[in-house]
Amino acid sequence: MELIVIFISASIVNNFVLSLFLGICPFIGVSNKFSSAVSMGLATTFVMVITAMVSWLLYFKLLLPFHLTFLQIPAFILVIAALVQFVEMVIKKVSQPLYRALGIFLPLITTNCAILGLALLLVMRDYSFVESIVFGLGSGAGFILALSIMAGIREELELRDVPKAFQGAPITLIVAGILALAFMGFAGMI
Protein backbone atom coordinates (compact mmCIF):
# COMPACT_ATOMS: atom_id res chain seq x y z
CA MET A 1 0.00 0.00 0.00
CA GLU A 2 2.82 2.34 0.99
CA LEU A 3 4.54 1.59 -2.31
CA ILE A 4 1.42 2.38 -4.34
CA VAL A 5 1.12 5.72 -2.54
CA ILE A 6 4.75 6.55 -3.35
CA PHE A 7 4.24 5.61 -6.99
CA ILE A 8 1.09 7.68 -7.45
CA SER A 9 2.50 10.60 -5.50
CA ALA A 10 5.69 10.68 -7.61
CA SER A 11 3.97 10.21 -10.95
CA ILE A 12 0.81 12.31 -10.68
CA VAL A 13 0.30 14.35 -7.52
CA ASN A 14 3.86 15.62 -7.13
CA ASN A 15 4.73 15.31 -10.80
CA PHE A 16 8.44 16.02 -11.29
CA VAL A 17 7.95 18.43 -14.17
CA LEU A 18 4.70 20.14 -13.36
CA SER A 19 4.90 20.59 -9.62
CA LEU A 20 8.53 20.11 -8.57
CA PHE A 21 10.06 21.86 -11.61
CA LEU A 22 12.68 19.19 -12.20
CA GLY A 23 13.68 18.41 -15.77
CA ILE A 24 12.27 21.54 -17.38
CA CYS A 25 15.04 21.73 -19.99
CA PRO A 26 14.13 18.48 -21.80
CA PHE A 27 10.46 19.26 -21.17
CA ILE A 28 10.78 22.45 -23.24
CA GLY A 29 13.51 21.19 -25.56
CA VAL A 30 12.36 17.73 -26.64
CA SER A 31 8.59 18.11 -26.47
CA ASN A 32 7.94 19.25 -30.04
CA LYS A 33 7.48 15.75 -31.47
CA PHE A 34 5.43 13.01 -29.86
CA SER A 35 7.73 10.12 -30.84
CA SER A 36 10.93 11.76 -29.59
CA ALA A 37 9.16 12.84 -26.41
CA VAL A 38 8.24 9.23 -25.64
CA SER A 39 11.77 8.02 -26.41
CA MET A 40 13.26 10.70 -24.17
CA GLY A 41 10.81 9.79 -21.41
CA LEU A 42 11.67 6.10 -21.66
CA ALA A 43 15.42 6.78 -21.62
CA THR A 44 15.03 9.05 -18.60
CA THR A 45 12.90 6.51 -16.72
CA PHE A 46 15.45 3.83 -17.40
CA VAL A 47 18.28 5.96 -16.01
CA MET A 48 16.09 7.10 -13.11
CA VAL A 49 15.43 3.58 -11.85
CA ILE A 50 19.12 2.64 -12.06
CA THR A 51 20.14 5.93 -10.43
CA ALA A 52 17.68 5.35 -7.60
CA MET A 53 19.25 1.96 -6.86
CA VAL A 54 22.86 3.04 -7.19
CA SER A 55 22.54 6.31 -5.29
CA TRP A 56 20.66 4.58 -2.47
CA LEU A 57 23.45 2.01 -2.14
CA LEU A 58 26.10 4.75 -2.42
CA TYR A 59 24.56 6.97 0.22
CA PHE A 60 23.30 4.51 2.81
CA LYS A 61 25.97 1.82 2.43
CA LEU A 62 29.08 3.89 1.70
CA LEU A 63 28.80 7.58 2.54
CA LEU A 64 26.75 7.28 5.72
CA PRO A 65 28.71 4.49 7.52
CA PHE A 66 32.03 6.22 6.79
CA HIS A 67 30.80 9.73 7.71
CA LEU A 68 31.41 11.06 4.23
CA THR A 69 28.03 12.69 3.69
CA PHE A 70 29.66 16.03 2.83
CA LEU A 71 30.84 14.37 -0.39
CA GLN A 72 27.21 13.73 -1.38
CA ILE A 73 26.97 16.25 -4.22
CA PRO A 74 30.24 15.47 -6.07
CA ALA A 75 29.74 11.73 -5.48
CA PHE A 76 26.19 11.71 -6.88
CA ILE A 77 27.00 13.77 -9.95
CA LEU A 78 30.06 11.68 -10.81
CA VAL A 79 28.15 8.44 -10.32
CA ILE A 80 25.32 9.69 -12.51
CA ALA A 81 27.69 10.81 -15.26
CA ALA A 82 29.52 7.46 -15.17
CA LEU A 83 26.23 5.58 -15.02
CA VAL A 84 24.83 7.29 -18.10
CA GLN A 85 28.00 6.47 -20.02
CA PHE A 86 27.81 2.86 -18.83
CA VAL A 87 24.12 2.51 -19.70
CA GLU A 88 24.86 3.90 -23.14
CA MET A 89 27.61 1.32 -23.73
CA VAL A 90 25.48 -1.56 -22.46
CA ILE A 91 22.51 -0.62 -24.63
CA LYS A 92 24.79 -0.28 -27.65
CA LYS A 93 26.10 -3.82 -27.10
CA VAL A 94 22.83 -5.49 -26.13
CA SER A 95 20.20 -3.95 -28.33
CA GLN A 96 20.95 -1.96 -31.47
CA PRO A 97 17.31 -0.90 -32.15
CA LEU A 98 16.95 0.42 -28.60
CA TYR A 99 20.27 2.23 -28.94
CA ARG A 100 19.13 3.87 -32.14
CA ALA A 101 15.87 4.95 -30.47
CA LEU A 102 17.43 6.30 -27.27
CA GLY A 103 20.97 7.02 -28.45
CA ILE A 104 21.06 10.77 -28.84
CA PHE A 105 18.99 11.38 -25.73
CA LEU A 106 21.23 9.52 -23.30
CA PRO A 107 24.10 12.06 -23.05
CA LEU A 108 21.53 14.82 -22.47
CA ILE A 109 20.26 13.00 -19.40
CA THR A 110 23.48 13.62 -17.44
CA THR A 111 22.66 17.29 -17.04
CA ASN A 112 18.95 16.64 -16.47
CA CYS A 113 18.24 17.93 -13.00
CA ALA A 114 15.43 15.40 -12.59
CA ILE A 115 18.02 12.64 -12.16
CA LEU A 116 20.15 14.40 -9.55
CA GLY A 117 16.96 15.72 -7.95
CA LEU A 118 15.66 12.16 -7.64
CA ALA A 119 18.86 11.03 -5.91
CA LEU A 120 18.78 14.01 -3.52
CA LEU A 121 15.08 13.62 -2.76
CA LEU A 122 15.26 9.93 -1.92
CA VAL A 123 18.03 10.68 0.56
CA MET A 124 16.09 13.62 2.01
CA ARG A 125 12.95 11.51 2.41
CA ASP A 126 14.86 8.57 3.89
CA TYR A 127 13.34 5.94 1.59
CA SER A 128 14.20 2.25 1.88
CA PHE A 129 15.80 0.43 -1.07
CA VAL A 130 12.53 -0.90 -2.46
CA GLU A 131 10.78 2.41 -1.91
CA SER A 132 13.57 4.15 -3.80
CA ILE A 133 13.08 1.91 -6.82
CA VAL A 134 9.33 2.53 -6.80
CA PHE A 135 10.00 6.25 -6.41
CA GLY A 136 12.30 6.12 -9.46
CA LEU A 137 9.67 4.22 -11.48
CA GLY A 138 6.91 6.62 -10.44
CA SER A 139 8.97 9.70 -11.25
CA GLY A 140 9.84 8.27 -14.63
CA ALA A 141 6.21 7.47 -15.36
CA GLY A 142 5.26 11.02 -14.40
CA PHE A 143 7.98 12.40 -16.65
CA ILE A 144 6.75 10.34 -19.62
CA LEU A 145 3.19 11.45 -18.90
CA ALA A 146 4.02 15.16 -18.75
CA LEU A 147 6.32 15.02 -21.76
CA SER A 148 3.90 13.11 -23.99
CA ILE A 149 0.89 15.29 -23.08
CA MET A 150 2.98 18.37 -23.81
CA ALA A 151 4.22 16.94 -27.11
CA GLY A 152 0.64 16.17 -28.16
CA ILE A 153 -0.44 19.72 -27.41
CA ARG A 154 2.57 21.23 -29.17
CA GLU A 155 1.90 19.22 -32.32
CA GLU A 156 -1.55 20.81 -32.35
CA LEU A 157 -0.05 24.24 -31.65
CA GLU A 158 2.04 23.99 -34.82
CA LEU A 159 -1.15 24.44 -36.82
CA ARG A 160 -2.45 27.37 -34.79
CA ASP A 161 -1.83 31.06 -35.29
CA VAL A 162 0.36 31.97 -32.32
CA PRO A 163 1.57 35.61 -32.13
CA LYS A 164 5.14 35.82 -33.36
CA ALA A 165 6.58 37.00 -30.05
CA PHE A 166 5.04 34.05 -28.21
CA GLN A 167 6.18 31.29 -30.56
CA GLY A 168 8.52 28.65 -29.15
CA ALA A 169 9.40 28.77 -25.47
CA PRO A 170 6.87 31.38 -24.22
CA ILE A 171 3.74 29.60 -25.49
CA THR A 172 5.15 26.29 -24.26
CA LEU A 173 5.54 27.74 -20.77
CA ILE A 174 2.01 29.12 -20.79
CA VAL A 175 0.62 25.76 -21.88
CA ALA A 176 2.69 24.13 -19.14
CA GLY A 177 1.11 26.54 -16.67
CA ILE A 178 -2.36 25.47 -17.71
CA LEU A 179 -1.29 21.80 -17.51
CA ALA A 180 0.07 22.42 -14.01
CA LEU A 181 -3.32 23.88 -13.07
CA ALA A 182 -4.98 20.73 -14.37
CA PHE A 183 -2.60 18.50 -12.42
CA MET A 184 -3.44 20.42 -9.25
CA GLY A 185 -6.79 18.69 -9.41
CA PHE A 186 -5.04 15.51 -8.24
CA ALA A 187 -3.79 17.22 -5.09
CA GLY A 188 -6.57 15.83 -2.92
CA MET A 189 -5.97 12.25 -3.98
CA ILE A 190 -3.49 11.41 -1.24
Binding site: F21, L173, G177
Partner: peptide
Protein backbone atom coordinates in the same frame (compact mmCIF):
# COMPACT_ATOMS: atom_id res chain seq x y z
CA UNK B 1 3.56 25.97 -9.60
CA UNK B 2 1.14 27.03 -12.35
CA UNK B 3 1.80 30.69 -11.58
CA UNK B 4 5.52 30.24 -12.17
CA UNK B 5 4.97 28.84 -15.67
CA UNK B 6 2.41 31.51 -16.56
CA UNK B 7 4.46 34.46 -15.24
CA UNK B 8 7.66 33.34 -16.90
CA UNK B 9 5.94 32.53 -20.20
Amino acid sequence: PAGAFLTFG
